[in-house]
Amino acid sequence: MKRFNLETVVGLFLVAGFACLAYLAVRLGDVGLFRDESYPVVARFTSVSGLKKDATVEIAGVPVGNVADIRLDPDRFEAVVRLRIRKGVPLQEDCIASIRTAGIIGDRFVEIKPGGSPDLIPPGGEIMETESAVNLEELISKYVFEK
């Protein structure tokens, strides 16, 4: 009987330890299972070459969100990018979303330039003004091979 109690205590201790480790992994990994402190916004681009899911969204060089999803609109042949923007960061209706590169050959990210409109984009709304990614290889080939 005494052995059964010791095994039970050790088992409960191990289960509690694994639960604590799982909780810390989720919280420190910024997974967001327990709370969602962001709102969705959609932007349409003609090209999102090199942009990946979970890429950073920045305003004035400060991270304010990330890319949640990228898909193709088969009717308009445009890339539809769903962004998660941190709550408390308002986006004006006339803001501009651009795809930029960190450095010359760095990762792609979405930069948002604030607008001046007093009207804000509601959660689930769409950024109307966008600038697509610049394809460096295409620019070089135009310069080299154009006469």
Rank of each mutant, 00 (worst) to 15 (best):
M1T: 07
R3E: 15
F4L: 15
T8D: 14
V10N: 09
L12K: 05
V15P: 09
V15A: 14
A16E: 03
G17M: 12
F18H: 09
F18K: 03
L21D: 05
L21R: 15
A22N: 11
A22G: 06
A25M: 13
L28W: 12
L28A: 08
G29T: 07
D30M: 15
G32D: 10
L33H: 13
F34P: 02
F34Y: 11
R35M: 05
R35D: 06
D36R: 10
Y39A: 04
V41Q: 03
V41N: 00
V41A: 01
V41W: 01
R44E: 10
R44A: 04
F45N: 00
T46P: 01
T46N: 14
S47N: 13
S47I: 08
S47E: 08
S49C: 12
L51V: 04
K53M: 03
K53R: 12
D54T: 08
T56V: 11
V57D: 01
E58D: 09
E58P: 02
I59M: 11
A60F: 14
G61W: 08
P63Y: 06
V64F: 05
G65N: 04
V67Y: 00
D69I: 00
R71Q: 11
L72C: 03
D73I: 15
P74F: 13
D75F: 10
F77W: 13
F77A: 09
E78N: 07
A79L: 04
A79F: 11
V80P: 00
R82E: 00
L83E: 01
R84F: 02
I85T: 02
R86T: 11
L91K: 00
L91P: 00
Q92N: 13
Q92K: 08
E93Y: 07
E93L: 10
D94G: 06
C95W: 02
I96L: 14
A97P: 01
A97M: 10
I99V: 12
I99C: 02
R100H: 07
R100S: 04
T101V: 13
A102C: 08
I104E: 09
D107I: 10
R108Q: 08
R108L: 07
F109K: 02
F109Q: 01
F109W: 04
V110N: 01
E111V: 02
E111C: 04
I112M: 03
K113G: 06
G115K: 04
G115A: 05
G116K: 10
G116E: 12
G116S: 14
P118R: 07
P118V: 12
P118M: 06
D119G: 04
I121G: 00
P122G: 02
P123T: 11
P123I: 14
P123V: 13
G124Y: 14
G125L: 13
G125H: 06
G125N: 08
E126K: 08
E126I: 12
M128H: 08
T130G: 02
T130R: 10
E131F: 10
S132E: 06
A133V: 07
A133H: 05
N135A: 09
L136P: 04
L136D: 06
L139S: 06
I140K: 15
I140F: 15
I140T: 07
S141M: 13
V144W: 07
V144F: 10
K147T: 13
